[in-house]
Design a protein around this nucleic acid. Sequence first.
DNA 1: AGTTAATCGAGACGGTACGTCAGGTCTTGGC
DNA 2: GCCAAGACCTGACGTACCGTCTCGATTAACT
Lengths: 200, 200, 200, 200
Amino acid sequence: MSEEGRPRRPHTGRRRNDAARQAVLDVTLDLMRSGNADVTIDAIARAAGVGRQTIYRWWPSKGAVAAEALASHARATVPVSDTGSLTADLTAFLAASFVSLRDDRTRSLLRRMMAAAQADEHVAATLADFTAARRATLRELLSRGQARGELPGGADLEMLTDMAYGVLWYRVLVGHAPLDDQAAKSLATCLVAAGAAGAR
Amino acid sequence: MSEEGRPRRPHTGRRRNDAARQAVLDVTLDLMRSGNADVTIDAIARAAGVGRQTIYRWWPSKGAVAAEALASHARATVPVSDTGSLTADLTAFLAASFVSLRDDRTRSLLRRMMAAAQADEHVAATLADFTAARRATLRELLSRGQARGELPGGADLEMLTDMAYGVLWYRVLVGHAPLDDQAAKSLATCLVAAGAAGAR
Amino acid sequence: MSEEGRPRRPHTGRRRNDAARQAVLDVTLDLMRSGNADVTIDAIARAAGVGRQTIYRWWPSKGAVAAEALASHARATVPVSDTGSLTADLTAFLAASFVSLRDDRTRSLLRRMMAAAQADEHVAATLADFTAARRATLRELLSRGQARGELPGGADLEMLTDMAYGVLWYRVLVGHAPLDDQAAKSLATCLVAAGAAGAR
Amino acid sequence: MSEEGRPRRPHTGRRRNDAARQAVLDVTLDLMRSGNADVTIDAIARAAGVGRQTIYRWWPSKGAVAAEALASHARATVPVSDTGSLTADLTAFLAASFVSLRDDRTRSLLRRMMAAAQADEHVAATLADFTAARRATLRELLSRGQARGELPGGADLEMLTDMAYGVLWYRVLVGHAPLDDQAAKSLATCLVAAGAAGAR
DNA sequence: AGTTAATCGAGACGGTACGTCAGGTCTTGGC
DNA sequence: GCCAAGACCTGACGTACCGTCTCGATTAACT
């Protein structure tokens, strides 16, 4: 029973209550991270101590909530090193990217997001931004290598980027092969060699 | 309302009615291919002219139906050419793989399947088989090139395969870049170059 | 067909919608009165323009709905005359009681209620109240006759009452004999004579 | 688990298997006597070790099964004494009739039968026969009293009979008052007095 | 003696109703 | 005007029975 007395957040009167908004986003991410049950609007509202209407007032759909939750989460980013060697930088970047995916909760979040994106345009749009930002980071890393002459001018950096994130997502979603340091190293080597061919 | 007279399939008595089973699978695929609304058990049963219980009798979940429908569909496969040139074979294989994905209905099916796999273990298992079969085909193509000496013995064929299908799925799921002949050509070139490096 | 535009009852927000409650009760009685098919929750909900959940929210079972519907209907009561003669009063009371039972719809309602009471404790409880109220009325009529000396002090009024309503229900439920004015007269005479014996 | 090996009844080839018929009727009565769950065709078939089709082959509806089961049960009848005193005979008859109703299982059976009769014409017809036979017995008892001069020639024996069984059924169905020896005695006295008035 | 025919237990089939759960809308009453 | 709360209608869920339809076996009755 635990009569908890509800310490709840303070009212903000006629202005939007940002604490409530944040609680919704936090709870949504938490629920998507937990491998467990379905993420329903009811569950979010209950866990956030929020009325269902408050969610519908500010977001057009459950997907939109998830999308904004993801967007606000996207800040956490992988540090990019600059050792002067493309292979070394790439290996480090990929290894670092893979590390966080060893956490079941992070993997659960990404898998649910990608799944949701297939049915909800809000999530799709946000996930497109999310992935675009990550691709941009990797692309810049590759660009630096290209500027240093480690990749030819004609290298198809778009394709190289998609090859890297393609492997990452493919293995996250299907789960047939691990994303360990060995994979990061092999992938980095492959990418540099592929880029050196100067296709396009 | 179009008194159609119901020509319905014949009874099979106490044995399972395979026509009903097939109707369920066909209708399920059709519904998943149609971009429209959710695929509900009710909708499948109604469209297949089947009682809901008949579905529950034979499949443990909606995902399992979708999984079997996908599996029975997986026969349609990409022809593998053998021109003597790895790059040529690879380009042809990838281009052929991409062609069917230009169809909205096929793309819709694959996206829904991958999404469903994230929440339903039956779909996940079947999709794992499905993708494994396709990887095996590509791997063999690469193996032949390796046997001909176009790839070194140490080439990480697993990684090359995942790079190819990674790009395919990533672009299908996120939709940020096309899967056209140009992409097939660039991807093939990249893969051969990557393999030539003999990583691992 | 008949695009009727749904004038439906107004929303009451977070408070219970009493119009919906009344619609459910009204429709339930109507359906039980109509000799037709089974009274299903679906049918009640549909006819009342109510969601099925709204019924389950407020009543624990179909029987409970029927019970409350009957209870709210039970107001309609038989007028008790006071002519100074027990036999005359009794004959009038019984004849009036029998009159409404000449209506197929009323008889259908009572028969369904008694049947439902055998399987549903809510209906049983309500029907017990319902019949108790009617017995009390008749008992009082007999008491007045007793006070006037038309019945001895030792008369078993309980038994007399049950004999009267026993005949009524028995004939309603089995239908082997009519409940006409002749029956009312004979029954009244029998009861007065039976009471005069002063049994117990 | 209890691998019981099913000693089941022998096949009778192309003739109707009367053992199966009897098993269905027995089981039906048993289920109706047990206060528990609903009596479904499935439950009858399962408990009788019979295929559902075997039931539908021989009876048009569940009610018809119940009806025949009741009819085959109706043999057990109340012994009629003949002491020379109408009141004594009547008291003995009613007391004996009430005794078996002290058994919950018998009461459950009668209540279910009466309830079923309200919705199923087969049960209604059989119950009408069942009750008519019992009324005839009582009527004859009253007739003997009339022949002996204990009741006037004009006594409404029909009404007296219905008053007796009316009380019995009313109390069985509503349960507001007991059917004990005291009730039998009071009822008998009332009936004799009522009959003595020579109504009609 | 071999064939035919009807019954039996079994269980899949297309349905309908059940009771529950979630979605999205609406209103109350407090701040 | 925002908020928590919660009733409302809708519609999908998975289950239980209904009444129908084979099936393969068993046996009786008719060739």
